[in-house]
C-alpha cells in the first residue's frame, strides 16, 4: 500500500509540473504583447517598452517561469497588473460559488448514477431497465448549457419555483445562496449522471457474467444481493477511470453552468482576466483549478486503492 501511495503521489507531482509548463507556455506564447494591451491603442513603443520592463515581462521566459513557480509554491499567486488585486484573493472570492457547485454536481451525479446504472444492468432485459438505458443515452447527448437553459425556462421563467440565475452571497443569506445553487447543481448533476449511469451499467453487465458472481449466487445469495455485494464492488475498477475523467468534465460543466445561471464564479473570473491579459492571474487560477481536479482524482484513486487490492497491484 505504501508503494502504491508513493507512486500515485509521484505521478501527481510530475503531472502538476508538466501542466504548469504547458499553462505557462500556452498563455505566454499566444498572449501577444501584454504591456501593449494594458496601455491601450494610443501608447508609444517607448511606453510599452518601459511598462514591459517594469512588469518584468522582458526577461527570458524560463526566468519568468521559475519566478512564477517559486512564488506559487510559497503561496504567492501573484497580482493583477492593473487593479493590483491578489490572485489568491480573487480565487478566494469565487470559491464559495464554484466549489459547492462543482462538488455538489459531482456528488449528485454519483448518487444518481450508481443505483440507476445497477438497476439498468439488473433489469437489462426488462422494459424498466431499457428505459433507464435510453434515458441515459439521451442525457449524454444533451449539452449541459441547453439542459440549464430549458430548466431555467421551465422552473424559473414559467413556474417561478427557483431563481433563473444570479447569486445571493452566503454572507447575505445562507438559504438564498443555496436556492441560487439548487438549479445549477441539479443541472450539472443530471447531465454528468447520464454518462456515469451508462458506464456503471456496462461495467456491471460485464461483471454479471463473471464466475465469482455465479459462485456468489450458488452460495445462496439472491440475485440482488450478489449484484450489489459482489458485482458492484468488482465493477468499481473501470468506474474509477470514468470518475477521474468526470472530474475534468465537472470543471468544464461548472464553467458553462456558471455562465448559464450568471453566477459570479471561476468562469467569469477567467474570462474577464483572459480578455484583460492579466497573464499572471490567469496562470495561477488555471493552475489552482488543475490542482483541484488532480486532488479529486488522487482522492478517488487512493480511496479505491484501499477498497480494491487489485488497483494497488495493477497501477
Amino acid at each position: 500500500m505504501g508503494r502504491f501511495i508513493a507512486r500515485r503521489l509521484f505521478f501527481f507531482i510530475i503531472t502538476l509540473l508538466t501542466t504548469s509548463i504547458l499553462i505557462f507556455a500556452l498563455i505566454r506564447a499566444a498572449g501577444g504583447n501584454v504591456a501593449a494591451i494594458l496601455l491601450g491603442k494610443n501608447s508609444s513603443a517607448e511606453e510599452i517598452h518601459k511598462l514591459s520592463a517594469e512588469l518584468g515581462l522582458e526577461r527570458p521566459l524560463p526566468v519568468q517561469y521559475f519566478e512564477w513557480m517559486n512564488n506559487f509554491l510559497h503561496g504567492n499567486l501573484g497580482a493583477a497588473f492593473r487593479s493590483k488585486q491578489l490572485a489568491s484573493h480573487l480565487i478566494w472570492t469565487q470559491a464559495p460559488v464554484s466549489v459547492p457547485l462543482s462538488l455538489g454536481g459531482f456528488l449528485l451525479a454519483i448518487l444518481l448514477a450508481i443505483p440507476l446504472g445497477t438497476y439498468a444492468a439488473k433489469n437489462y432485459n426488462k422494459p424498466s431497465g431499457a428505459i433507464v438505458a435510453v434515458l441515459s443515452q439521451v442525457g449524454i447527448a444533451i449539452p449541459v448549457f441547453w439542459a440549464g437553459l430549458l430548466l431555467s425556462l421551465v422552473l424559473g421563467v414559467h413556474l417561478h419555483i427557483l431563481p433563473t440565475g444570479g447569486w445571493t452571497p452566503w454572507s447575505d443569506s445562507v438559504v438564498g445562496a443555496m436556492r441560487s445553487l439548487v438549479l445549477p447543481i441539479f443541472t450539472l448533476g443530471i447531465v454528468m449522471a447520464s454518462t456515469l449511469t451508462r458506464y456503471t451499467r456496462t461495467a456491471i453487465l460485464d461483471v454479471m457474467n463473471e464466475d465469482f458472481v455465479r459462485t456468489a449466487r450458488a452460495s445462496g445469495m439472491s440475485r440482488r444481493v450478489a449484484l450489489i455485494k459482489v458485482g458492484l464492488r468488482n465493477a468499481s475498477l473501470p468506474l474509477v477511470t470514468v470518475l477521474g475523467l468526470l472530474a475534468a468534465e465537472m470543471v468544464g460543466g461548472t464553467v458553462i453552468i456558471e455562465k448559464v445561471y450568471s453566477l459570479p464564479g471561476i468562469s467569469r473570473m477567467i474570462l474577464d482576466n483572459v480578455t484583460a491579459r492579466e497573464v499572471v492571474v490567469v496562470q495561477s487560477t488555471v493552475m489552482v483549478i488543475v490542482i483541484y481536479v488532480m486532488t479529486i482524482n488522487l482522492i478517488i484513486d487512493l480511496a479505491y486503492g484501499l477498497l480494491d487490492p487489485r488497483i494497488r497491484v495493477t497501477k
Partner: peptide, 23 residues
C-alpha cells in the same frame, strides 16, 4: 502514455477558453 495521462486529466474547456481568448 504519461503525456497522454496528463492531457486527459486536464480540464480541456479551460484551455480552450484561454486559447480562444489569446489567439
Amino acid at each position: 502514455m504519461r503525456m497522454a495521462d496528463i492531457f486527459m486529466a486536464m480540464p480541456g474547456i479551460i484551455f480552450a477558453l484561454v486559447l480562444a481568448s489569446t489567439i
